[in-house]
Amino acid sequence: MPSRLEQHPGLLLHDITRLFRHSFGTQLRDLGLSEPQWRVLGTVNRLSGMDQTQLAALLGIGKAPLGKLVDRLESEGLLQRYPDPDDRRTNRLRLTPRAQPITDTMRRRHLQFQEYYLAELDLPTRQVLEETLLTVYTNLAGDNQDRQILPSTESLSIIQLISAVTRLNSRHFDIKLKAMGFTRSQWLVLSALDADEGLSQSSLAAKLNMGKAPLGVLIDELEAGDWLLRQIDPQDRRARRLFLTPACRADLQSMAQEFETLHQYSLSHIGNTKQRLFTRALQNIRARLNAYAEDPEQLFPEIKT
């Protein structure tokens, strides 16, 4: 990811969410769950009785793919739909008894992992981090549906708060990007190249933790739109390096300004000292998650005990 992640809380939050899902997912492989599946089970475990529309909004997953996920989890006996007593047209979701041992294991490992990524933060810093995340969440949520789905954020862990804030941040920014003719995925590709131009497609895929095939589609789209170009690597004629076009740089500047405006709004009513502590705490968490992703067994082999 771009080096600006080291300084910008909004981008740090996004990258921490990405790193956590990847790293924590490796700890659940023995349960036979994909990332979307364990996220669904974990959310329904916390908020039993929600409907699919609410769950889709909380997870940032489209209704159609979420419906397939729920179908599969229901067919495996882990999730159950039941009629809303106040509206028979609506189905609500709850775990089955068969799912409870799985979510108990997920929760235990989550708590263990939390001790790892927060290990270098003292109690006062953790309190500032949690208080700031709650304020940012309140600033971004306003009166929208998240406030109705999550009336209380007091029981959420640090990483769950970070994920909730990231989702709201992305939703606001997606609206601005759409008006400019971009998707968030396209913006992430261009931002990564803006910070580290000349990358190969393989190197860019690794930075963004993205598959080569879907990244190739994005690059084709951006090249067709005259946002980036492929150039032959002078050291290896078989390789192609990626560069931004001059026209793209002006649009990236506009997008950066939009992101900064949103960022400043999200930090309303938070003093400069708290903002600095908040940023340092996020940098620390990101560094811990990065280290874990590089060598999970050596750094934290006891996580499955």
Rank of each mutant, 00 (worst) to 15 (best):
F278M: 07
F278S: 02
Q201S: 12
R240S: 04
R237D: 03
I158N: 05
D174N: 13
A141R: 02
G142V: 00
I175V: 10
G225C: 13
L215E: 00
S152E: 11
T261K: 04
Q145T: 06
V165S: 10
A141Q: 02
E258T: 00
A205M: 13
G211T: 13
Q145R: 09
Q186I: 05
L150A: 07
R184I: 11
A250H: 09
L177A: 03
L208I: 02
G225H: 14
V217N: 10
K212L: 10
L188G: 04
I159G: 00
A247R: 14
F182Y: 05
R240G: 00
S155K: 04
K178A: 15
P246K: 11
S200R: 13
L156D: 07
M180L: 11
L229S: 14
L161H: 03
L193Y: 01
K178Q: 12
D226L: 14
S268C: 04
D194W: 04
S203V: 12
R240H: 11
R237C: 01
N209H: 15
H269E: 14
T273I: 13
A164G: 01
T166D: 15
N272M: 12
R230T: 07
L242F: 06
L244V: 01
Q275V: 01
E258W: 07
S200A: 03
R230Q: 14
K176W: 02
A250C: 05
Q257I: 04
T279I: 09
M180E: 15
